[in-house]
Design a protein around this nucleic acid. Sequence first.
DNA 1: TTGAAAGCGATACCAG
DNA 2: CTGGTATCGCTTTCAA
Lengths: 333, 333
Amino acid sequence: MTDANATPRRATMKDVAALAGVGLSTVSRVVAGTAGVRADKVRRVERAIAELNFTRNDFARTLRTGNTATIGVIVTRLSDPFFAQLAHAVQERAQSEGMLVLIASASDDPEQATRVLQSVVSRRLDGLVVVVPEQTDVSYLQQEISGGTPIVLVDRPMAGVVADEVFADNAAGMSLAVDHLVAQGHTRIGCFVHTIGEFTADARRDGFVAAMAAHGLDADAELMPTVIEDAALIAPVLQAMLATDDPPTAIVTTNSPTTKATLRAIRAIDATLALVGFDDLDDADLMERSVTTIAQDPANMGQHAAELLMMRIRGIDAPIRRVVLGTRLVTRS
Amino acid sequence: MTDANATPRRATMKDVAALAGVGLSTVSRVVAGTAGVRADKVRRVERAIAELNFTRNDFARTLRTGNTATIGVIVTRLSDPFFAQLAHAVQERAQSEGMLVLIASASDDPEQATRVLQSVVSRRLDGLVVVVPEQTDVSYLQQEISGGTPIVLVDRPMAGVVADEVFADNAAGMSLAVDHLVAQGHTRIGCFVHTIGEFTADARRDGFVAAMAAHGLDADAELMPTVIEDAALIAPVLQAMLATDDPPTAIVTTNSPTTKATLRAIRAIDATLALVGFDDLDDADLMERSVTTIAQDPANMGQHAAELLMMRIRGIDAPIRRVVLGTRLVTRS
DNA sequence: TTGAAAGCGATACCAG
DNA sequence: CTGGTATCGCTTTCAA
C-alpha cells in the first residue's frame, strides 16, 4: 500500500531470513519442508514469509538443482479436439504427481513446428510428449534423449528418433471397420484416405487392404482415392465411383475430417452408402445420418504417454517401449 | 559417442568461451546477437557452439534478467473445444512475438483450479490469461497485478480482481436470438439456463428477459428453468411445459451443452419447437435438426486477450480495459 | 571491442 | 540443529 507505484521488489529468502532473524539456510529448509528445524524457528520463518508475501523463485531453484518439475507437451494443433484431449490427459496425470505441464501448439507447418519445438526444448524440461508433423526437423531430439531428457512420441513415429511411443492400432481398427461392413453383406467397399506418405494415413490404408484380403475381398485401387478433406472435392469423386458398373456400397474413411467431408458429399449428391469413419465423432447421435466409427481414445493415449514419461523421469531404465492401443467399433445404425 | 552412458554435462557458455578462446562475455554477446563483436570472433564462437552443441540455459538467463518471455494461459478445461481454441489463439499471437505460452488446464473443481493457478503463478511469468471457475480463490492474483504481472480475465469476471477483461456481449447475443424468433412469429419463448449464480448464465438469462421486454413480451419464469446439461433431465421439464395451456413454441438455451441436451430431449419426446442455442455448434450442418445459434468467437477472444497482455507487457500504462466482443447469429433452417 | 567480475535467488555441503 | 559460503549459468556494468 505504501509506495503504490514503484513496483515493490519481491521478497527473497534473504529478506525472510533477516526478518525472522535466522540464517538463510534455515529459511530454505523451512520452505523445502525439510525436517530438523526447531518448531519455534519454523514458526518465526513462516510468519516472516506471510508478512513479506514471499514465494520462492523457481528459476533460481531450477538453476541450482537442475530439475524443473515440468513436462512439455507439443501437439500439432491444440484447436483439434483430439490433441486437446490428449494434452489435457497428460496434464491431469502429471499434475497428480505435482508436475506442471507446458503445452505448446506447433501448427501444421513443419517450419513453424520446428521453431516451437526448439523453444520448448531449450526450456530443458524434465520430459516431453511430442506430436508434430512428420516433416518437422527433429534431429536434435535424439541429442536431448541421450542427454537424459525422456521423450514420448505419440500418434506417429518420427524418423531418426528412437524413443518410447504410444500409437493407436490403426490396422486393427480398419479391420474392425471392414469386418463390420462385411458382416452387413457389403463386398464392394471403398476407402477414402486423407493423405499419402504419412504414418496414420498409410497404416490405415494398409490395414484396410489387409482386412479386405482377410475376407478374400479385393481392395480395388479405384475405390481407394486419396482425398482432400473437403466435401466439394469428394463429391465428384464419389459420384464418379457410383456411376461405374460395379459401384461401392460402403466407404471407410481414415480420419474424422474426411468422415465429415464424406458425409457432406453423400448428402450433396444424395447417395446411398454405408459409411464407417476412423476416429469417433462428437455428438454423432445428433447427426442426420448415423455414422458408425472406429474410436480412438485420446485421453487414454495421453495417460499412457504421461505414465511412460513419469517412469523415465523417475529414472527407470527399461528398454524402449512401444504402446499400441486398441480401438473400438462404435456402431450406430 | 564416447562415454555413452554417463550423461554428458551440458555445455555452458564457459565451455564455449574456452573452446573458442574468447571471453565469456563475448560468447554471451554472440548468443544474444548483440552488435559489436568482430566477425572472426563471431565465427569462432559459432563454430564452438556447434561443436559443443551448446544451447543457452534459459533459467539462468531468466534468473539474471527477470523476464521469462513466457505467458501463461489457465483455462478451466482444455478438453472443452471453446477453451482449446481460445488457448490456441493466444499461443499463436504470442508466438509471433517470440514468446512461449504455458497452457494449463484447471478443471471445474475450484480447489484444484486454485492449486493449478498457484503453481502457474509461482512461475513468475510475464503475463497471464485466466479463465477459471468463479469460485476459485484468486485473492493472490491482485498481488501479482500490483507486483507488475499483467493479467487478463476472459469470459467471466473474478470477484476481487481488477484487471483487463475480454468478454462476449452476452446480453446482445440473447437479443439476437430473441429478435430472430420474434421475427419468425414466436411470442411464447422459453429459456433454458445452464446454471445459476454464474456470470455467463446470469448475464444471458438477464439478456433474454430484457430482449423479451424490448418486444413487449413477457419472459415467463415458468419457461425459464435452470436445467442441468442432461437430456434425461430436460425431457420431463420440457414435456411439462408443452402440456400446459400456453406452451412455448420456441426455446433459447444459454450454452452449448444445454443446446445439445435440449436437442436430445426434443427428439426423445418428439416435440415440435424452434430452438436457438447460445454458442455455435461444430458440424451443425450435419445434424438431423438444424439449429440456429449465437456464435461466440473463441479465437477472437484469445487474440484480444493476447493483444491486451502484450500491450501491458510492453509496459503501456493505460487504464484497465474491458473488451466486449459481439456475437453473431448463425441462421440455419 | 573485449574481458573480468559482480550479482540474480536458491540449494547444499561443511563446519560449528 | 544452524549458519556461512560456494556454486548453478547467464547478463551486464566497468575498465582496459
